[in-house]
Design a protein around this nucleic acid. Structure first.
Lengths: 345, 345
DNA sequence: TTGTAGGCGTTATCAT
DNA sequence: ATGATAACGCCTACAA
C-alpha cells in the first residue's frame, strides 16, 4: 500500500514532491485553474494518480470555505415515494459533480423551524440548498438564505424571483389533459379532490380541472370539489362525502396518488365498484398506483429528471458558472390504467 | 449582529478573548474534557453563548481527524418505505448526538461496489457507518472497514462477529406467531412466499413458518413454498402459480408487504376474493399495507426504534464509550386486519 | 487547573 | 508559469 507518514492518504505535499513541483501548482491543477503549462499539468496528474491522491475535504473547506456539499431540506412526509425519486435525481447529479449530499428532514410548519435550519447551516456550512415544496415558499427562510449568501434552489414553488433557480412541471396542463380524458370517456359529473393548500401544485391542478370543464361546456359544481391534504386519509374522507351525495359523481380526480388510493378505499367501503360505478384518477405514478386494485390511471411527472436538473443548476450557480439556458419546466404524461372507464349509464 | 473580522461566525479565539482565558481552555469546555474549574467553565459557556459560537467542523476535523458525521449505506430499493422508517430513527439519534448523516445509495451487488464505497470513505472521512441488509453480510466490505479501523453497525445481518454492533428483530418468532394465527383460523393448506435469498430475514421467517406447521401437525408441502424477492412482482407471480394449483392454498403468508400486495393483486386477477377465497398476510406494516383493499394483516417491526438504537450504539462506539448492555433484538407485533379470515369450506 | 507551541492539508497572497 | 509563506480554526502534546 501507499501509506505515508501520517498513515492515511497521500497529501498535496506528497504529490508535489513526487511531481517535482510546489504544492501551489498541485493545487492549481486539482482546481482546474488557468496558467499551468500542459506538461506540468500532466506530471502532476500522473503523480496524483500514482499516489491515489484525494484532496482532504476538511482542509479544503477550512482554507477555502467551500464545503463541496449541498443539502436537501424537506418536510418529512408520511409517504416517501415522491421524495425517493427526488433523491435519486439529486444523488445522481451530486455524484457526477463530486458533491456530497446532506439530508435535513423537518417538521413544518413548526415554531422552531427557522432556528433548526440556522443551526444546521452553521453546523454543516454547506455550499447550497435545495428546498422542496412547500418550503420554497417560506419567505423567512429564503430571506435568511439570501442574507447569508447561500445559493438555493426551489422545487415547485408558488412564486419566486425571476433569477431564482427553479424547477416545476406543467401541473395545469397535465390535470387539464386528465380531465379531458375523463370527459371523453363520457363522464359529466366529475369530482375533484384538491391537494394541500400550501403547495403550488394544488392551485394549478385545480385550475387545469376547471379549464377542461369550461372548454367542454360542463359547469363547475362546488359540491364536487373538496379540500384534501395529499394524504390517504383525506382522499378517503372526501371521497366518502362525495359518493354519499344524492347525485354522486361518476368519476373522481384526485390531486395525487395517495388521495386516489384513499378514494379507492372509500369507494370499496361504500360498496361502489371501481371503475364500473366510479372512475378514480391520481397524480404522481407512485409504486402504489400500479399495485393497487384496480391499478390507477394517473399522471407521471419526470421527478427524478427534474431533481437532477435543478441540482445541476444549483451546483453551477455555486461554482459561478453561467446557468444553462434550459427552462425549468417539465412535461408530464398520462398513464392509463384500469381505474377509469366510461360511466355505467 | 455579532460579526467579527472574518465576517462569519465567532471563532474559538473570540470566545477565549471574551472569557479571558486561553483557546485551549475554551476547547476543553467545548469538548467536555475534565480538569476545568466550574467557574471557568461557566465563564466560557457564557461567552460562547453570547457570541453565538459554533465550532468550525472543518477545523475540528482537520486537527482532530474526527468528522462528527456517519453514513448510512443502502441498496437503493424500489420501495422506500422500510428505509424511510430507518432514516427517521437514524436522524433522530444523530440529531441528539450532534452528528450529521450522509446517505450513500448503492447498486448491489455490482462489480464496482467496493470501489465506490472506498471512494466515498476517502471523500467524506466519516467516523462510522451503518450497513443495511444485505450489505452487512458482504465480507469484503466488512473486512475493508475493519482494515481501515472504521466502526460500523449492522442492521439485520445473517451472521456477525460477537463484538459487532448489531440490531435485529425476532423474525422467526413473528412469523411463527403469524402462522399459528392462520392455523387457528382453520387453514390447513398454507402457502408461503420466501424473501430475497440474500437477506437474513428470509431464512428466519421461513423457519418460523415451518416450526408452526410442525407444532400443529401440518406437513410441509414444497409446492406451497415459493421463492420471492421482496418485491411486488415476485409476490404476484408466485401467488399466481400457487392459486393455479389443482389444490390451491386457502391462505398465503408472504415474507413482506410488497409481496403480499402482489399476491393480493394476483388473487384478484384470477378471480379469487380476499379473504373469502384466500387469506393473505404480509410483513413490515408499510403504509400500503393499511391502504390496500382489503387492508393487510401483517407484522409490525419497530424499525424506527431499532434504527435509533443502533445509531446510538455506533456513536457510543465511535466515542469509545462503553456500549449500553442492551440487547439488539427487538420484538414484533401482529397487526390483524381484513385480509385474513377462516377458510370458506 | 491552565497555557504555549506546533501542526493538520488546503487555499490565497504576493513575489519571482 | 511557478513558488514561498501565511492564513484557516481547531486539537494534541507538553509545559508550567
Amino acid at each position: 500500500m501507499n501509506k505515508n507518514k501520517n498513515g492515511r492518504g497521500a497529501t498535496i505535499t506528497d504529490v508535489a514532491r513526487r511531481a517535482g513541483v510546489s504544492i501551489k501548482t498541485v493545487s492549481r491543477v486539482m482546481n482546474n485553474e488557468p496558467n499551468v503549462k500542459d506538461a506540468t499539468k500532466e506530471k502532476v496528474q500522473k503523480a496524483a494518480l500514482a499516489l491515489n491522491y484525494e484532496p482532504n475535504m476538511s482542509a479544503r473547506m477550512l482554507a477555502g470555505s467551500k464545503s463541496f456539499s449541498i443539502a436537501l431540506i424537506y418536510e418529512n412526509p408520511h409517504e416517501f415515494s415522491y421524495l425517493k425519486r427526488v433523491l435519486d435525481g439529486v444523488f445522481d447529479a451530486c455524484g457526477r459533480a463530486g458533491y456530497s449530499l446532506l439530508l435535513k428532514p423537518c417538521l413544518y410548519p413548526h415554531e422552531n423551524f427557522l432556528n433548526e435550519v440556522q443551526a444546521f447551516l452553521k453546523q454543516t456550512r454547506i455550499d447550497g440548498l435545495i428546498l422542496t415544496a412547500p418550503l420554497g415558499d417560506d419567505e423567512e427562510l429564503t430571506a435568511l438564505l439570501e442574507d447569508q449568501g447561500i445559493p438555493f434552489a426551489l422545487i415547485a414553488p408558488k412564486q419566486h424571483k425571476a433569477e431564482a433557480i427553479v424547477v416545476k412541471c406543467d401541473d395545469e396542463l397535465a390535470t387539464r389533459t386528465m380531465t379531458e380524458h375523463i370527459i371523453s370517456l363520457g363522464h359529466r359529473r366529475i369530482g375533484f379532490i384538491k391537494g394541500h393548500p400550501d403547495h403550488a401544485a394544488t392551485d394549478l391542478r385545480l385550475s387545469g380541472y376547471k379549464v377542461a370543464l369550461k372548454q367542454h361546456g360542463l359547469k363547475y359544481d362546488a359540491k364536487l370539489v373538496r379540500q384534501g391534504y395529499f394524504d390517504f386519509e383525506s382522499g378517503q374522507s372526501t371521497c366518502k362525502r362525495m359518493l354519499n351525495l344524492k347525485n354522486p359523481p361518476t368519476a373522481i380526480i384526485a390531486s395525487n396518488d395517495d388521495m386516489a388510493a384513499g378514494a379507492n378505499y372509500a369507494a370499496r367501503e361504500l360498496g361502489f365498484e371501481v371503475p364500473a360505478d366510479v372512475s378514480i384518477t391520481g397524480f404522481d405514478d407512485t409504486p402504489t398506483a400500479s399495485q393497487l386494485w384496480p391499478p390507477l390511471t394517473t399522471v407521471k411527472q419526470p421527478i427524478t429528471q427534474m431533481a437532477e436538473f435543478i441540482t445541476h443548476q444549483l451546483i453551477a450557480a455555486i461554482r459561478n458558472e453561467e446557468p444553462a439556458a434550459d427552462t425549468g419546466t417539465f412535461q408530464c404524461d398520462l398513464v392509463l390504467r384500469s381505474s377509469t372507464a366510461p360511466p355505467r349509464d
